[in-house]
Design a binder for these strands. Structure first.
Length: 288
DNA sequence: TTAAATGTTTAAAT
DNA sequence: CATTTAAACATTTA
């Protein structure tokens, strides 16, 4: 599920309660998604929680780091008081499913981290995600993190323009290319292009300086808004209002998942095509 | 029954 | 070599 804003939302939530907690034990329910020996972190205290692109990083004592990638359906649920078993005692983030509010561990729980206070569950129904453990440096040096392009909020406009305009590929695919700019996925790429009035098929090297500059500002705008609203919880509105958890960016989608609805600018119906197998939403009039 | 889903990797085709 | 598309991963839901 998650893109940069959804992971950032989880990070902000966990930062409130996780630092200082000690790991009592770890139980791996599906070893397929785990790399490294999670036993290494037993007895260690959580020090910091970071994010790089769509990867959540939990730093512990002894210079160790846990790295989580949620891919399409990963989620973290922290039952922070061990009060048990209702959503009232939980922090949830990631792909919204009934696991947020049901009994844990669930059928999709892959790893359980028992803390001195609270329990953290990593759930992932499709098993695309992963959890890795290693020294801070070894995690940072892994191929996946190594290849990532700059963070949108740490990149200069000129750098964005230079990296993006180097490619002849369609701009939407370039925005989603984590080696060019990291953190954008299908929702925010679609929405940023609508904001900038650029057709998703436009070859990146055909964009004018003006368009590149505008696009970069819109990229940051939609990401900021995603973070402001706590990320997107997709169409599963049933999980949104329990505690105000799960995020509300879906109420602010520009074009993503808006097929057939009127464009907010010109009322033309939003169209859906496919690019590289991914749903691509745009206004055929103002993004022509 | 078929299609699609907020992601990434790999192989195969252009 | 650059680029593109499709398939793969595994599961659920419309």
């Amino acid at each position: 599920m998650p893109e940069l804003p959804e992971i950032e939302t989880v990070r902000l939530q966990l930062t409130k309660v996780l630092p200082g907690r000690r790991v009592e034990w770890v139980k791996v329910l599906n070893s397929k998604i785990v790399e490294g020996d999670l036993k290494k972190i037993v007895g260690l205290k959580v020090e910091d929680i970071r994010r790089r692109a769509k990867v959540l990083l939990i730093d512990l004592e002894k210079d160790l780091t846990l790295a989580f990638h949620f891919k399409m359906t990963g989620q973290l649920v922290l039952d922070y008081d061990d009060q048990g078993k209702t959503y009232k005692d939980r922090i949830v983030g990631g792909h919204p499913t009934e696991d947020f509010v049901g009994t844990l561990p669930s059928a999709h729980t892959r790893v359980i981290f028992k803390l001195d206070q609270g329990t953290l569950y990593f759930n992932d129904q499709r098993l695309f995600g992963w959890v890795r453990v290693g020294t801070k440096a070894s995690i940072a040096n892994e191929k996946f993190l190594q290849k990532l392009g700059p963070e949108p909020f740490e990149m200069a406009t000129e750098e964005f323009a230079e990296r993006v305009s180097k490619s002849r590929r369609p701009i939407k695919l370039v925005l989603m290319d984590q080696e060019v700019i990291s953190g954008l996925g299908n929702i925010y790429a679609n929405d940023a292009l609508w904001e900038a009035k650029i057709n998703p098929q436009t070859p990146s090297n055909k964009l004018t300086d003006k368009q590149l500059k505008l696009l970069f500002s819109k990229v940051k705008l939609v990401l900021e808004e995603g973070i402001k609203y706590g990320g997107a919880t997709a169409a599963d509105a049933k999980y949104i209002d329990l505690r105000g958890l799960g995020g509300h960016y879906q109420d602010h989608f520009r074009v993503y998942d808006q097929t057939g609805l009127p464009c907010h600018r010109c009322k033309t119906r939003i169209k859906k095509d496919y690019m590289s197998g991914r749903g691509t939403y745009y206004c055929p009039k103002c993004q022509s």
